[in-house]
Computed example of a mutant assay.
Amino acid sequence: MPSPSHAVAQAKQALGARLREIRLVAGLTGRDLGDLTGWHSSKVSRIEHGRQTPSDNDISTWCRHCGADDQAGELVASLRTIDEMYVEWRRMQRTGLQRLQQAAVPLYERTTCFRVYEPSLIPGLFQTAEYALALMRAVVAFREIPDDSAQAVEARLQRQKVLESSDRRCVVILEEAALRNRIGDVEVMAGQLGRLLTVALRPNISLGIIPIRDRAMWPTNGFWIFDKERVLVETLSAELTVLQPREVALYAKAFTELADLASYGAAARTLIASAIAALDT
């Protein structure tokens, strides 16, 4: 998978290429468009080659003078995707982890369907306090940021309350490795796997587990789909936000394929029980 920074650069280039195509279809040169808009022709070139990010107004002006007003809305949506898609973890976490947990609350509260794929961790919505604390302490140590782990855990547990509403649905696909990747000690993992068995019984939650032996799709980062609105992808260095409808649909397609690989019901519970039994070895 390309790095987030590479993905941003590609997105800027793709936006510029679309704007160039609109200009060419309109039969305008870069100088022509510059004269119509009052811009220097070099600005047109920089935008088209992804070296300058246009504003919302730039896109609207471009489309208006090229007779393509009907395309302005989609292009502005693409621009906002670029603006939001790459946020460095260090900037988000510079004051600790609590603020980051709280910032996501509005998104969680307006989401009616969560689709979550995690290859190596139990997702935050299902975490026990002990598991979350062990994980956050590891993050704090690695990133060398202020330690507000206890407060961040409390904020994460508060966020889990969104699943108490029967109007919200949560579909989670885990790799079997997520059950066996030890976060904290044996007791912490036993408690976490036990909670997983419990939450999987809720009527608004669907839990699928992809057995290691059945892995048939290429490796990918974990990702969360919030309704059809956006996708969040967490990497080592950043959080990638995807808003472009075509890209959201691509993640939805990947989620469907991953879901087809998963085991459910009794078969999933057997995999969890096996992971619990393996804690004693």
Rank of each mutant, 00 (worst) to 15 (best):
S3E: 14
A7N: 10
A7I: 03
V8W: 06
Q10S: 15
Q10M: 15
A17W: 00
E21M: 10
E21Y: 03
L28G: 02
R31C: 10
D32F: 05
D35Y: 08
D35P: 02
S41F: 09
S41Q: 10
S42P: 03
V44E: 10
R46W: 04
Q52D: 10
T53V: 05
P54M: 10
S55A: 01
S55Q: 03
S60Q: 14
C63N: 13
C66E: 02
A68V: 11
D69M: 10
A72G: 03
G73M: 04
E74I: 14
E74F: 11
E74Q: 14
V76A: 09
S78E: 15
S78H: 11
L79T: 04
D83I: 00
E84T: 00
W89F: 14
M92V: 00
R94G: 01
L97F: 15
Q98I: 07
L100C: 08
Q102E: 12
Y108Q: 09
E109K: 05
E109R: 11
R110E: 14
R110P: 04
C113R: 15
C113D: 06
R115L: 15
R115M: 13
V116N: 05
Y117N: 07
L121K: 01
I122D: 08
L125S: 06
F126I: 01
A129T: 08
L135V: 12
L135S: 07
L135H: 09
V139A: 01
V139T: 11
D148T: 12
Q151N: 00
A152K: 00
A152H: 02
R156D: 07
Q158A: 12
Q158L: 14
L163S: 01
S165E: 06
D167K: 13
R168M: 04
R169G: 00
V172A: 12
V172K: 02
E176D: 08
A177Y: 08
N181G: 08
I183Q: 11
D185V: 00
E187I: 03
V188T: 11
A190N: 03
Q192E: 13
Q192Y: 14
Q192R: 09
Q192L: 09
R195L: 03
L197M: 12
A200Y: 07
L201Q: 07
P203D: 13
I212Q: 12
R213T: 14
R215K: 14
A216Y: 00
A216I: 01
P219L: 08
G222S: 08
D227H: 15
V231W: 13
V231Y: 15
V233C: 09
E234Y: 01
E234F: 05
L236V: 12
S237E: 09
L240T: 08
V242W: 13
P245H: 10
L250W: 07
Y251W: 13
K253L: 11
L261P: 03
S263G: 02
S263L: 09
R269M: 05
T270M: 09
L271G: 00
I272C: 02
I272H: 06
S274H: 12
S274V: 02
S274N: 11
I276P: 00
A277I: 02
